[in-house]
């Protein structure tokens, strides 16, 4: 396949970036999207040019590191996958593919296609944990009976890999799906209820401080989330937050 690429190039955080055109010949449908970029980079290096920087790690859809906006959609055209799980068979000969970094004020570009997603880390640090004594006498979590329905919902929320596709997809660059997944995974379990009130207030406060937009319930985040995190979590976070704020 012959593929035309339009890729965002930006020297560093303070430089102004631009779209640069590249042409790839001999692209195989069985190549992963990232392998296609690897080959492009090898070609650039052999020509003495600066390779394109992009985030990647596990390359099996579980770490949440890869983060590309491909033809206007986070992680590309296929549903419930990350970029590393996207294959070139999803494109056809002669296609033009536009590749950009995830765009949000809270996700500043570091270089080329790499963005700084530490805003998510700071939201997590604000309350995305439970305080457990790890002295060696920790109670086994499995010894506490939990309703199957709640266990399933908590597990589904915990599947969030923090990739940022929800922010990238949202027209408002809102981080509510991410934050709500992290709130929900604890709020649904007895171990998480103890700090539930402080957790939701602190995480929402940090989310707002980071400069993410406001959710307007378009549902784009749910559609583009590679792990299928549900909008139900946002409603739960809203409930938790309102209840916690009113109680004081």
């Amino acid at each position: 396949m012959k593929i035309y690429l339009k890729i965002w190039r930006q020297k560093d955080a303070s430089s102004k970036g631009k779209i640069v055109d590249y042409t790839m010949n001999g692209v195989e449908g069985d190549m992963s999207f990232l392998e296609m970029l690897d080959i492009l980079n090898e070609d650039l290096i052999s020509k003495g040019e600066v390779p394109i920087e992009f985030d990647h790690d596990c390359r099996e859809g579980i770490c949440g590191t890869c983060s590309l906006q491909i033809n206007g959609r986070p992680h590309g055209p296929d549903r419930l996958i990350t970029v590393c799980q996207l294959h070139m068979r999803s494109f056809k000969d002669g296609d033009t593919i536009v590749i950009e970094p995830f765009r949000a004020k809270a996700f500043p570009v570091i270089k080329d296609l790499i963005v700084d997603r530490n805003a998510f880390e700071r939201i997590q640090q604000a309350g995305g944990f439970i305080s457990v004594n790890t002295s060696g006498r920790t109670v086994d979590a499995n010894s506490i009976p939990i309703r199957k329905e709640n266990a399933d919902k908590a597990f589904n929320a915990a599947a969030c890999i923090g990739c940022g596709a929800c922010v990238a997809a949202c027209k408002n660059a809102s981080a509510m799906l991410f934050t709500s997944a992290k709130v929900s995974q604890f709020a649904l379990l007895p171990q998480g209820r103890i700090e539930a009130s402080e957790r939701v207030q602190n995480m929402v406060r940090q989310m707002d401080l980071e400069g993410f937009g406001n959710c307007t319930n378009t549902g784009a985040c749910e559609i583009e989330c590679p792990k299928g995190i549900s909008l139900e979590n946002i409603a739960r976070m809203n409930r938790e937050y309102l209840g916690a704020s009113i109680k004081g």
């Binding site: 809102s174 549902g219 583009e224």
Partner: peptide
């Protein structure tokens, strides 16, 4: 909300397929 949401993405996408994941009515309130 509209002003704050616009500020949350100061640099716009070159290509953005909003229609692929959200209906027109929800994106144009």
């Amino acid at each position: 909300l509209e002003i704050k949401n616009t500020q949350a993405r100061s640099i716009k996408y070159t290509k953005y397929k909003g229609a692929a994941n959200a209906p027109w009515v929800s994106r144009n309130m």
